[in-house]
């Protein structure tokens, strides 16, 4: 049993592709644009284009396609539930009923909405995963800090915010590792996580959380103490080993993203 196998968020996949070498700011801006596009598009055709584009990025970054999608596996039950929710609960007066069951009836409008929302979540997840798989935690920090610098002028503690986010990301994997160990320790003493109905299964999860959070807090505290003793004081006066600079790849990337955005704008308005 390996729980960490399906965690892709917060994992860095070392590599030397053009996508890896991009300036982190380029990647953050590009991801943001893609996310905004995702929130606006509403047709199968647009999602089709999006799918092709994302597939090309995944290929260019040298990420095995199966791996890029693996992180979705733990989320699958939630996705299905969300889809069913939209399917049955969406009602509009002029929608055609596809089929009815007990007090529920599914309409074609509900089906469409369900599909759209599910696709949106799927792609949102994929875009963020590609970003973290190809960008190390530190360069992600540097990029975000640099982009958020203007906000510092209006008094936002950007460096602290970014560091908090980065540590949270680091802890996704740590939490998964902890969970793996605790679940195993409980299974070894006779807890059958895979048996019983939904409620029984859920109830078994509770004793896992206490040790999980105690251990996670302990580790977080250790990490903070270690950072503090390496002279970290919240980012004030901090310099960087790797200075960010945009190169030709970055310009190419921005151009590609702009072209793609143009295409999407066309599909949205026609």
């Amino acid at each position: 049993m390996e729980l960490t196998k399906n965690i892709t968020l917060g994992v860095y996949l070392p590599g030397n592709t053009a996508v890896h070498r991009l300036d982190p700011r380029t990647k953050i801006i590009a991801s943001t644009i893609l996310i905004v596009i995702l929130l606006l598009i509403n047709s199968y055709q647009a999602y089709g284009y999006f799918f092709l584009f994302i597939s090309a990025v995944i290929a260019a970054a040298g990420i095995p396609p199966g791996y890029a999608l693996r992180g979705l596996k733990p989320m699958l039950p939630v996705l299905v539930l969300m889809w069913a929710f939209q399917l049955f609960l969406h009602s509009s007066p002029d929608a055609d009923v596809i089929f009815s069951w007990w007090i529920f009836s599914a309409t074609d409008a509900g089906l469409h909405l369900g599909n759209m929302i599910t696709l949106r979540v799927l792609f949102l997840f994929t875009v963020t995963t590609i970003l973290t798989l190809t960008t190390s935690i530190v360069s992600l920090t540097d990029g975000l800090e640099s982009l958020l610098r203007p906000l510092k002028k209006i008094g936002l503690p950007t460096q602290e915010l970014v560091m908090t986010m980065v540590i949270a990301l680091r802890f996704v994997l740590i939490l998964a590792e902890e969970l793996d160990k605790i679940v195993k320790a409980q299974m070894a003493r006779g807890v059958a996580f895979d048996r019983g109905n939904f409620i029984q299964k859920t109830r078994k999860i509770f004793p896992v959380f206490l040790p999980l959070f105690i251990n996670a807090f302990r580790r977080a505290e250790d990490l903070i103490v270690a950072m503090e003793s390496r002279s970290y004081t919240g980012g004030k006066g901090r310099t960087k080993m790797k200075t960010l600079h945009m190169g030709r790849v970055d310009i190419a990337c921005i151009l590609i993203i702009l072209l793609f955005t143009g295409l999407m704008v066309l599909t949205i308005f026609t």
Binding site: E178, I182, A185, A188, R189, P211
Partner: peptide, 9 residues
């Protein structure tokens, strides 16, 4: 297990 912190709950 190696680390008792994981098995004492």
């Amino acid at each position: 297990f190696q680390n008792p912190d994981y098995q004492l709950f």
